[in-house]
Design a protein around this nucleic acid. Structure first.
Lengths: 241, 241
DNA sequence: GTTACACGTCAATGCTGTTGTCATAAGCTG
DNA sequence: CAGCTTATGACAACAGCATTGACGTGTAAC
């Protein structure tokens, strides 16, 4: 007997074991030992199944997460967890990262991130854009890096070889800046740009933290407190359902 | 008579006029007034065509761009231009933003961005990670926002309605932070998070600018110069081929 | 004039998501 | 316990997808 949960689990396993092209209704049906059309008894369409997969990934990313009261560490851990959960299922991530599901795990994540920012003391009109930038950056990088993993093997290796075989051999006469940094570039582009981009975002958010004395206008960005998260907690911790 | 350029232009026009699903070999052939299989005379596969589209987009983004000598303004304009060029062709962007083409326009963009950073005075070991974070964030957001535009109309409106119909009606007892910011959230999530995320990245990069006195270690981030880009230009401007 | 090649067409293959129909089994109602 | 309803999955079919190989046809070169 099938169930929605069983189908979602099998779909994620299918994506994890086999590559990018494994997630089709036909193969999913075969993996379940059932006719492909049986899936439509539980999901209105493949898009519906996809949203369920997306919410499952968001749920896995948060599994066991607890706020520490250190807003910067909390945001960092949420961002890296979301990124890691999506990396574990690249094909599903590639299709799901751009969607708004409105389902339970997603709502919990929104609530928690907003809670971290508001407890840190950010006023609502700043917390909301920061939330938006933070979560979209995490999802966007998750999709970007997932796409590299989900590519057919031929295309993936071809993309990586470009840095070694093409950019490393450009002449200093036509491309001086690339030629000067080619070894650094080749090493840098092997890994994800997300961890560093996340730190940059957290740096900028810290500079706007009320404890750092930054204002919202076009004025100067002053020196941020390096441990603003250890200031008095203006909002009590509360666990969410 | 067909040509590679004609096929690329037609493909972009096809994506622009009709929606996400318009870019198929069959419809592209029909739009060209030719048999679909004729496309394979000019492109080894659809992946090959895709890389050509990607490089064309990167080229359009840079069309007419000139460095001003203000590194922050230059990075901002490049980021917004890439984002805008990809938004103009969402379906192509969605498929192409994750790829490394190694083709001419892409190499020009890499060269120019590295040039902006190095002329601004960033040492190579800092310019390269900053380049990586900047370009990947731009491409990642471009793909994220393109995905929203490339969705089938039904799914796109459904995703937007989620914020109005589901998040706006959550109770303060179970989701207090969402409930407190629901109107702000609904307005915020209508637009792209990229412009603000880009400013945050530029803020953080400015704080690491040599003229700002920041060091690479774990020390304090000091107050950044608000116009570091108007400092003496350590590297001469040079137009690239 | 003949040979070679570039170009586009045609037909076919094996995928894909999706739908409508049908059989079977379970569980509830009388 | 008999009969009816409903849920569930199987089966077959449809249209559309990328891709490939064989087949002409026109053009250019020798």
């Amino acid at each position: 007997m099938l169930s929605a949960e069983m189908i979602v689990d099998t779909a994620l396993r299918l994506v994890g074991q086999h590559g990018a092209e494994a997630l089709t209704v036909r193969r999913l049906g075969a993996a379940l030992g059932a006719d492909p059309s049986a899936i439509y008894r539980y999901f209105h369409s493949t898009d519906d199944l996809l949203l369920a997969l997306a919410d499952e990934l968001v749920g896995q990313a948060q599994d066991g997460w607890r706020p520490t009261g250190d807003w910067r560490a909390d945001l960092r851990s949420i961002g890296l967890r979301i990124h890691a959960a999506y990396q574990a299922h690249p094909q599903a991530a590639l299709l799901a990262a751009h969607r708004t599901t409105g389902r339970g795990h997603e709502m919990l994540a929104v609530e928690r991130i907003l809670g971290v920012l508001r407890r840190a003391g950010f006023p609502d009109h700043e917390a909301v854009p920061i939330y938006h930038a933070f979560v979209d950056q995490g999802l966007a990088f998750a999709a970007l890096d997932a796409a590299a993993l989900a590519l057919p093997a031929a295309a993936a290796t071809a993309d990586l070889q470009v840095w070694r075989q093409r950019y490393s051999r450009l002449g200093a006469d036509t491309h001086p800046n690339i030629a000067a940094t080619a070894p650094l570039l080749e090493a840098e582009m092997r890994r994800s740009g997300y961890p560093f981009a996340l730190e940059l975002l957290l740096d900028a958010v810290a500079a706007r933290h009320p404890a750092a004395g930054a204002q919202t206008g076009a004025g100067a960005v002053e020196a941020p407190d390096r441990q603003p998260e250890q200031a008095a907690d203006p909002m009590p911790e509360q666990d969410l359902p």
